[in-house]
C-alpha cells in the first residue's frame, strides 16, 4: 500500500489525540497496542497519556476493545463503506441522504459528532482491521478510509494504518514492493513482474487450476483455504517449508523442517508501521533456516539448463 497517508507508531505515541479503531479488536488480537503505542503512553505532545486522548471504536459488535473506548459506534454489518461515504460528505458540510444514513445503523447526530471530532483533532489516526478490509467491499473499504484520512488533512493532520496480523506479513509487502514494484500477487513468468489481483492471487490460481506446482513457506493454507483450493494443492506437487509438520505438509509431496523465525532463526521483521526490527533468537535450532533452504533450492534449480533458450547472437550489420 504505497502512497497511503500514514506515520510510524512513535508519532502516534507522541502526537495522536484522537485514535479510531475500525473493524478490529486490538484488546484481544494486538494486546500491547494500547499500552505500548496508541492509548496509554505519555507522549511529547500528549503529556498526560490516556487523559489527553480520545478513543473511538467502530465495529459491528461490542468486542472486548469497547471497554477501552470513549465512544463505541456500532455500524451495521457490511455498511462500512456507506458510513465512510457519509463521513466524507459530512466533513465537507455536504447534505447527506437520510436513507443512506439510516442504512449504516447509526443516527445523523452520532455521525455528525464523529465528523466534528475527526476535524477537531490535532492529530488523528485510523487503525483499521480485517473487519473493514476483509468484509463486503474489501479493499474498496480500505481505499475509502484512506481517502477519508487524506481528505481530513485539509482540516488537520490525519493518518491511517492497517492493523496487520500474524508474523511478518508487513515485511512480505515491503520486500515484494522493493524487489518487484508490487506488494503481492506478482507473476514473473515472462521474466518481468506483472500485477493483477484476482488473476495472480493464490486463491484464484488454485481454484482455477492455473498453477502446476506450489511452494508454501511460513503459512498453512491447507488449514485455512477453501476446499477446491486445497484439492488443487493435492493434485499438483506441493512443497512445504515449515518448523512443524502442518496440515499442508500432510498433502504435500515434499516437506522440509526449518528453524522458527525469531526463536531459532535470525533475521529481520517489519512492524505494522513498516519499521524493520532485528530478531534476537535465543535458541539454536537443529534445523536449517528458511533462508538457507530457499537459497539451496535456488542453487539446485540454477544448475539445470535455463528455462528460456539462449538469445541468438546478434546478426552482424553489413
Amino acid at each position: 500500500m504505497g502512497g497511503k497517508v500514514s506515520c510510524t507508531l512513535g508519532e502516534v505515541k507522541n502526537r495522536a489525540d484522537l485514535i479510531v479503531y475500525w473493524g478490529g479488536n486490538p484488546a484481544e488480537c494486538h494486546p500491547r497496542h494500547f499500552t505500548k503505542y496508541s492509548l496509554m503512553p505519555k507522549g511529547r505532545f500528549v503529556p498526560n497519556g490516556r487523559k489527553d486522548r480520545t478513543m473511538i471504536l467502530v465495529d459491528i459488535r461490542e468486542t472486548a476493545s469497547a471497554k477501552a473506548a470513549d465512544i463505541f459506534l456500532q455500524v451495521r454489518p457490511a455498511k462500512d463503506f456507506e458510513m465512510i461515504t457519509v463521513l466524507r460528505a459530512l466533513i465537507k458540510e455536504q447534505p447527506v441522504d437520510t436513507k443512506l444514513v439510516a442504512e449504516t445503523g447509526l443516527t445523523l447526530e452520532e455521525l455528525t459528532d464523529f465528523a466534528q471530532r475527526l476535524k477537531k483533532a490535532k492529530f488523528g489516526v485510523f487503525f483499521f482491521g480485517m473487519g473493514l478490509s476483509m468484509t463486503r467491499g474489501k479493499h474498496m473499504n480500505s481505499a475509502a478510509l484512506l481517502t477519508l484520512a487524506a481528505e481530513l488533512n485539509a482540516f488537520t493532520k490525519f493518518v491511517a494504518m492497517p492493523m496487520r496480523g500474524h508474523g511478518n506479513v508487513t515485511g512480505g509487502d515491503v520486500i515484494m514492493r522493493w524487489t518487484t514494484g508490487y506488494p503481492f500477487g506478482v507473476n514473473l513468468a515472462r521474466g518481468y513482474p506483472r500485477f493483477n489481483p484476482g488473476e495472480y492471487s493464490t486463491i484464484d490460481l488454485l481454484i482455477r487450476g492455473d498453477t502446476d506446482a506450489v511452494l508454501v513457506l511460513g503459512a498453512d493454507p491447507g488449514a485455512t483455504m477453501p476446499q477446491p483450493a486445497i484439492d488443487h494443492m493435492v493434485r499438483v506437487p506441493t512443497i512445504v517449508l515449515d518448523p512443524k509438520v502442518t496440515h499442508t505438509s500432510k498433502i504435500a509431496r515434499v516437506h522440509i523442517t526449518t528453524a522458527v523465525t525469531g526463536i531459532s532463526a535470525p533475521g529481520t521483521a517489519y512492524r505494522m508501521d513498516e519499521i524493520p526490527l532485528p530478531l534476537k533468537p535465543p535458541l539454536k535450532s537443529p534445523y536449517p533456516t528458511d533462508e538457507e533452504v530457499i537459497r539451496r533450492i535456488y542453487q539446485a534449480v540454477a544448475k539445470k539448463p535455463p528455462l528460456m533458450p539462449p538469445v541468438r547472437p546478434k546478426v552482424p550489420r553489413v
Binding site: H166, G167, N168, V169, G171, G172, V174, I175, M176, T202, L205, L206, T211, D212, A213, V214, L215, V216, L217, G218, A219, P221, T261, A265, P266, G267, T268, A269, Y270, P276, L279, T289, D290, E291, I294
Partner: peptide
C-alpha cells in the same frame, strides 16, 4: 509454479 505464504518468515527469506 506458485510461491505462497511469506508471513512467518524473515525478510531475508
Amino acid at each position: 509454479p506458485l510461491v505462497y505464504g511469506l508471513s512467518n518468515i524473515t525478510c531475508e527469506a
